[in-house]
Amino acid sequence: MASNSYCESCSGEGKSKAAIRFCSDFEEALCKECVEYHQNCKATKSHHLMDLTALLRSKISTLKKFYEVHEAVSLDFYCTQHDTEYTFSEWQNSGKTLDHLRKDRNDNVEELEKSESAICEEVNNLKNHLIKQINTLAEKVTTDLTNCKKKFLYQLRKEIAKISELYDSVQEREQQLEFLNDHGSNN
C-alpha cells in the first residue's frame, strides 16, 4: 500500500487523484473512477476493496504485514477487526474468479459461434439479393435490347420497302426510256 493517499493507477499515468479505497489483491490505492472500473471489470470485481481512511487509521503499517507465527510469510488479507489472515477466503475468491473467467470464456466461444453463423447467413442473404438484382437487370437489358432491335428492324424494313419501291419505279422508268429510245421517233 502506498504511504500517500493518491491513486497509484492514475499516478502511473501522471495524474494526481485522491485515493479512497485500497485493493488488497493488487496492493494499491485507488481513486473513485478506478474503484468503479475495478468493480465493473470481470477480472477484478471479486477483489477485496477496503476503505482507505479506515486502513490509514488502523495499526497496519504501509509495508507488508507478516504473520506472527510464520514470520517469513506475508499476510494475504488483513482483517482490521480480528487481526487474522483470511487465506481460505482468498482461495475461495480465486476459485470464484476463475469460475467466472471460465464461464465468460465459454460465453465468448458461444457468442463467437453464433456471430459466425449470423454473419455467414447475412453474407448468403446479401449474395442471393445481389444475384436476384443482377438477374432482374439482365432481364431488363435483354427486354430493352429486344425492343430496340424490333423498333430498328421495323424502321429499317420500312426504309427498305420505300427504297425498293423507288428502285422499282426507277427501273420501270429506265425501261420505258430504253423502249422509247429503241422504238420511238427521233422527234
Rank of each mutant, 00 (worst) to 15 (best):
S164H: 02
C120A: 08
K114I: 13
L52T: 14
T87E: 01
D51I: 03
L130Y: 11
T84L: 05
R21H: 10
K59M: 09
L63W: 12
T136C: 01
E121L: 09
Q155V: 00
T143S: 12
C31V: 04
F22E: 07
T142M: 11
H183M: 01
D83G: 01
W91E: 07
S164P: 01
N108A: 14
C23T: 09
L126K: 03
A161K: 12
I20R: 02
A118K: 07
E13T: 14
E113G: 02
G184P: 07
H47P: 03
Y67L: 14
V69T: 10
F152T: 15
D76I: 14
C34T: 05
E85V: 10
C148H: 11
G184C: 03
E71Y: 13
E139W: 02
E111K: 12
A138Q: 06
K132H: 06
C7K: 00
E172G: 14
E172T: 12
V123Q: 06
Y67F: 12
L177V: 09
M50I: 08
Y167N: 12
L166Y: 09
S89I: 04
E28R: 15
A138P: 00
A161F: 04
L180A: 08
S117K: 15
A161H: 00
K17V: 02
D83C: 05
E36F: 08
H100M: 07
V73N: 10
N187L: 13
R102K: 10
G14Q: 05
A138L: 08
A161I: 03
E8C: 02
S16H: 06
S5D: 14
S185H: 04
D76C: 10
L101R: 14
G184Y: 03
H48A: 03
S58H: 09
Q155T: 04
